[in-house]
Simulated assay, not measured.
Amino acid sequence: MPKRSNLAVQRQRALPRQLRIIGGQWRRRLLPVPDRPGLRPTPDRVRETLFNWLGQDLAGWRVIDAFAGTGALGLEAASRGAAEVLLVEQDAELAAGLVALRERLGAQAVRVQRGDGVAALQALAPASVDLVLLDPPFDAQQLVPLALAAAARAVRAGGFVYLEASRRWEQDALDALGLALRRHLKAGAVHAHLLLRPMPGV
């Protein structure tokens, strides 16, 4: 088994044991954070900022969290009224934990799929979702271009893609995908982006 870098080990040691859902019907409910290699959940503060950007009410939205991990991003969307939330996770233990969380919360709108996040995005019908959440493992940044391309195809005009990455994506790189950079913040080593699929003619 390959050794993890010192930076990866430090990140793992710094992981919180629990996260909380920030808003909506499950506000303040706690989510466990398993000790799994590569797991780097989005901090509460960053999730709060994201959903301030998006607006607090996601009623009727169709959402995919393509690298679900703890499920914090996708479950936050479901808590705020999203009609359909697909959590995709490749790690078997994490996927099983997401199924247990769904049952514990009674989250009827949430579906858990074990598998590859990029492949799940590529399998979606074009323009079929309102929000794509992309938070790939920090040590798998090579997935970001593939995931972004698949997300750009899957999201409807007027819909959003949220991306966490190890570097800032500039608008000239996003133009080829038909996405517009709306918001950006840097939190530690993470660059968080809110991207829009513009309406035709805009």
Rank of each mutant, 00 (worst) to 15 (best):
Met1Cys: 04
Pro2Lys: 10
Pro2Ile: 08
Lys3Ser: 12
Arg4Lys: 00
Leu7Asn: 05
Ala8Thr: 02
Gln10Cys: 00
Arg11Glu: 03
Gln12Gly: 00
Arg13Ala: 08
Leu15Ala: 11
Leu15Trp: 11
Leu15Cys: 03
Pro16Cys: 08
Gln18Met: 12
Arg20Val: 05
Ile21Phe: 10
Ile21Asn: 11
Gly23Glu: 05
Arg27Phe: 06
Arg28His: 14
Val33Met: 07
Asp35Ser: 12
Pro37Val: 06
Pro41Ala: 09
Asp44Glu: 15
Leu50Ala: 12
Trp53Thr: 06
Gln56His: 13
Ala59Ile: 09
Trp61Asp: 12
Arg62Asn: 13
Arg62Pro: 00
Ala77Met: 07
Arg80Asp: 09
Leu86Pro: 07
Gln90Glu: 15
Asp91Leu: 08
Ala95Trp: 12
Val99Ile: 13
Ala100Asp: 15
Ala100Ile: 09
Arg104Tyr: 08
Arg104Met: 12
Leu105Cys: 11
Ala107Ser: 09
Ala107Phe: 04
Val110Lys: 12
Asp116His: 14
Gly117Gln: 02
Gly117His: 04
Leu121Ile: 05
Gln122Tyr: 02
Ala123Ser: 14
Ala125Tyr: 01
Ser128Cys: 10
Leu131His: 04
Leu131Asp: 10
Leu131Asn: 06
Leu133Phe: 03
Leu134Trp: 11
Asp135Ser: 03
Pro136Ile: 03
Ala147Gly: 10
Ala149Arg: 01
Ala149Trp: 02
Ala152Gln: 07
Ala152Trp: 10
Gly159Asn: 00
Gly159Thr: 04
Phe160Ala: 13
Val161Phe: 09
Leu163Phe: 06
Leu163Val: 01
Ala165Ser: 12
Ser166Asp: 13
Ser166Val: 00
Arg167Asp: 00
Glu170Arg: 14
Glu170Pro: 00
Asp172Ile: 04
Ala173Tyr: 00
Ala176Phe: 03
Ala176Val: 02
Ala187Tyr: 02
Ala187Val: 04
His191Val: 00
His191Trp: 05
Ala192Gln: 11
Leu194His: 07
Leu194Gln: 12
Met199Glu: 14
